[in-house]
């Protein structure tokens, strides 16, 4: 109701609306331009030499770059690795954070507050500043250069616990009590009652965990040596750095790496935007 009223009101009174739209659209063009350029370059024939700006976008087009990139590089493997690591990190994060949050929110036990504060403190630990000792620890566990090394250290997210805890706190204790009287164990309470209610929060955590893992550069950069284990952020530079003057193959690799996330974004835009504003994570 008030939304439409506000719309009417502003539309009637905003003399700069047209200019605002114009600027907004131009800026949108600027933001999209590099991505569009990348996609066009990826379908240009390899031997083209381009001088005028417009030439980047005009025919001829070809898909042969995609074939040669898939032949010459392991981009599909990196894509799989990134997806697998992202998926595993997300699933494990959701499981362990929700279990911990459930205990803190819904079970009365000793040192509850102390443990919560202990987790809260983790939010202040900047991962980048402890990456050298992390490397040493993972090395001494003999886990370097494995999927486990990529996944496990990234799953203990204190923010996840905190967000879920405050969500679980909202589940009324009466509901819990009545379920308990019905003979529900805590595990069933967790699985059947509390988790389903926390779906929006779980989705937000899933989204930022996945984006974080998908874009993680520093840790895989240090922890991975074998090319079979490269994720996209590590694999792309290893391939692209061998090119300095031909644009087409590097941009094709970029496009292959980006198209899945762009498509996922277009489908899940609402949830992603919500997830970002919900958790306030930074890229």
């Amino acid at each position: 109701m008030s939304q439409t009223k506000n719309t009417l009101l502003q539309r009637n009174r905003d003399p700069y609306l047209r200019i605002k739209i114009l600027i907004g659209v131009i800026l949108a063009g600027v933001f999209l331009f590099p991505i569009i350029w990348m996609l066009f370059v990826s379908v240009k024939p390899q031997d083209m030499s381009i001088t005028a700006p417009l030439n980047w976008f005009t025919p001829p087009y070809t898909l042969s770059n995609y074939a040669s990139v898939m032949g010459e590089s392991d981009v599909l493997l990196w894509l799989f690795n990134s997806a697998f690591v992202g998926f595993a990190t997300t699933v494990i994060t959701l499981i362990v954070t929700s279990l911990a949050a459930f205990a803190i929110s819904k079970i009365k036990f000793r040192y509850r507050r102390a443990i919560f504060l202990f987790f809260l403190a983790g939010m202040m630990v900047p991962g980048e500043a402890t990456i050298i000792p992390l490397f040493e620890i993972v090395k001494s566990m003999n886990l370097l250069d494995s999927y486990t090394a990529l996944i496990l250290p990234m799953t203990a997210s204190p923010i996840g616990v905190i967000i879920l805890k405050s969500f679980f706190d909202g589940v009324p204790d009466e509901l819990m009590e009545s379920a308990k009287i019905d003979g529900c164990s805590h595990w069933r309470l967790y699985w059947n009652i509390v988790l389903p209610l926390a779906k929006p929060a779980m989705a937000a955590i899933a989204i930022f965990t996945f984006i974080g893992s998908w874009n993680n550069f520093l840790w895989p950069f240090l922890a991975i040596v074998s090319e079979e284990l490269y994720t996209l952020p590590i694999g792309i530079p290893s391939f692209n750095s061998t090119y300095s003057t031909t644009y087409m193959l590097p941009m094709t690799v970029n496009a292959i790496a980006s198209l899945p996330v762009i498509i996922a974004f277009l489908i899940f835009e609402k949830q992603i935007v919500k997830g970002v504003s919900f958790t306030g994570i930074k890229g």
Binding site: P34, M38, A257
Partner: peptide
């Protein structure tokens, strides 16, 4: 701005979409 929701979604998507790209992709672009 309160104009058609399609335009709003388009603007929002355009400004946000570079953020989801990998650092390696944006660097080589």
């Amino acid at each position: 701005i309160n104009v058609g929701s399609k335009l709003r979604t388009f603007l929002r998507g355009s400004y946000f979409i570079p953020s989801i790209l990998s650092v390696s992709v944006i660097s080589y672009i």
